[in-house]
């Protein structure tokens, strides 16, 4: 048994080393190697000085933060039903898990089918009202947000459902006997107890959104999504140093923001928030 554990531990280390650390080191190295092979931060300067890139990064971060926070709160009713084992919980859990089988680009396709120029929504609107206000809705910021939320909500719900299942039902009964009705129970007991899980779900959702570029490639027209920009620099313009710098930048921003969210909100409070 000890040899088996040692063997799989070494294999895991190998996978981590070659599959994660080595590519990361390579990307970091490419980002600081100049044309003549010298170490330089010139490419960083170029990327930081490019207003288009910086605006795309800020827009991407803001967009991902907003959709992630919204997804976590929106997932709460679903998480509650799954976590408390209420009617339909098993079906809802299974449906939420299907989400993992879908690549981001499939979500983009679904949005086009639903809200594209010839999507279901536009056809219905034209048929019922004779107008075309929803034509091409998939290609707006709203369409992109709906697309992101559609894969963020089920994943957040599964994380939150675990935390919901751990809430002692006696606490809710205690709140009731102390005069706490539904809203008071939710505000004073459930949400504070779920706070660490809400932060964890938001961080997970944020990282997922930051890394997602499939939907952006298909439908992002009004917002420039940073990972799609990296993809374009890498495969379209073959500008490896630029792509490497942007990748390092995105990684650092995502990790720093995740750490800050956990630090600021991730701990359960034990003093009243009056």
């Amino acid at each position: 048994m000890r040899w088996f554990i040692l063997a799989i531990s070494l294999a895991l280390l190998g996978i981590l080393g070659f599959g994660l650390v080595w590519p990361l080191v390579t990307v970091a190295r490419v980002s600081i190697i100049g044309a003549a092979g010298e170490i330089t931060f010139e490419t960083y300067g170029k990327v930081f000085g490019n207003a288009y890139f910086m605006r795309a990064l800020v827009e991407t971060v803001v967009f991902c933060l907003l959709t992630s926070a919204l997804a976590s709160f929106w997932a709460l009713p679903l998480a509650w039903r799954i976590g408390r084992g209420q009617t339909g919980a098993r079906t809802l859990r299974a449906l939420s898990q299907i989400n993992f089988a879908f690549a981001g680009i499939i979500y983009g396709m679904l949005m086009i089918v639903l809200m594209g120029n010839a999507g279901l929504l536009a056809l219905l609107e034209a048929w019922l009202l004779g107008s075309e206000a929803t034509r091409g809705l998939a290609f707006t910021a709203f369409g992109l947000a709906v697309c992101y939320l559609s894969f963020q909500i089920p994943r957040s719900a599964l994380i939150l459902a675990e935390a919901v299942a751990k809430i002692d039902p006696g606490l809710l009964d205690a709140a009731r006997t102390l005069g706490g009705r539904g809203p008071a129970q939710a505000w004073l007991v459930v949400l504070p107890l779920l706070r660490p899980a809400l932060v964890e779900a938001t961080v997970f959702s944020f990282l997922l959104a930051m890394a997602s570029f499939g939907p952006a490639l298909l439908i992002a027209r009004s917002i420039t999504i940073f990972p799609a920009l990296i993809y374009r620099e890498f495969t379209g313009f073959l500008n490896f140093p630029n792509a490497a710098v942007m990748a390092v930048l995105m990684l650092v921003v995502a990790l720093v923001l995740s750490a800050l969210m956990r630090l600021a909100f991730g701990r359960p409070s034990w003093t009243e928030t009056a």
Binding site: D173, W270, E272
Partner: peptide
């Protein structure tokens, strides 16, 4: 009501 498990709120 005093509960068997006491049901004290751990976040407070």
């Amino acid at each position: 009501y005093v509960f068997q498990s006491f049901a004290l709120f751990p976040h407070l």
